[in-house]
Nucleic acid binder design. Structure first.
Length: 225
DNA sequence: GGCCAGGACACCA
DNA sequence: TGGTGTCATGGC
């Protein structure tokens, strides 16, 4: 039996409206943001991206040419700046070595192949890879994150200790394979998580899903192993 | 002052 | 394969 994730999506969309993700002017900016936002709040990332823009470094050649140490200084506000500077450089190295520095060429592969290729780059893990595939390349790979895990486990859908890949599989199995829905649902879950499912609060207080799910008869308690 | 935020990797048992 | 330490700034 399918878990009714699409109904959850619809309830959240009705409650919060379209989230208009990813906040970035170009696919390249989305890629940079996906790396910089690793374990970091978006407000800190915005400042770093703003610095890169101001210095006219927000381009493949800009990041590729600049020294890692200097790059780190520009992205300080995003935290883990030395590690993230290396990650950005590793991505550009791959882009220039394999695709002549052209993002469009990298994005020519289908979703699965692109995901595998991104995962081969140092510093790109499963969530960052999925974010790039979905939000920059606009291909259907569902993104799960700490909020997805927290919300779905508190709703009783999955175990709290579920792995990234298993949570992703669970989500994709219970949703239509559609870029627009994947895009919006992930963003909505982050919105819900930020407002109602804090890490420090074991119960999602004030969660609009609780009442709405009950009223609309959304199926719950689909624990998967 | 402590906790947390749109993770990933290295190392170890 | 799973657990733990490390990377670090900024908002609340």
């Amino acid at each position: 039996m399918k878990t009714d994730l699409l109904s959850i999506h619809n309830i959240l969309l009705e409650r919060f409206g379209p989230q208009d993700w990813w906040p970035g002017d170009t696919p390249f900016e989305v890629v940079i943001g996906a790396i910089l936002t690793q374990s970091t709040s978006w407000t800190n990332v915005e400042k770093a991206i703003g610095n890169l823009k101001k210095k006219k470094l927000l381009s493949p050649e800009g990041i590729h040419k600049i020294d890692a140490g200097e790059l780190a200084l520009h992205i300080r506000s995003a935290g883990y700046y030395n590690a993230k500077a290396r990650k950005l450089k590793e991505f550009m190295e791959h882009l220039y070595t394999n695709h002549s520095g052209k993002l469009d060429q990298l994005f020519e592969s289908d979703a699965k192949a692109l995901r595998v290729e991104l995962l081969s780059i140092w510093g790109i893990g499963p969530e960052t890879a999925d974010s790039i595939v979905l939000y920059a390349a606009e291909k259907p790979e569902f993104v799960v994150d700490a909020y997805t895990k927290r919300i779905f486990s508190r709703m009783g859908y999955v175990k709290e200790a579920i792995s990234y890949e298993d949570l992703k599989e669970f989500s994709e199995k219970n949703l239509p394979r559609d870029v627009k829905i994947y895009n919006e649902f992930h963003a909505l879950l982050v919105r819900l998580g930020k407002e109602h499912c804090k890490k420090s609060k074991p119960i999602c207080t004030g969660c609009p899903l609780t009442k709405e799910c009950k009223r609309k008869g959304v199926r719950r308690k689909e624990i998967t192993s």
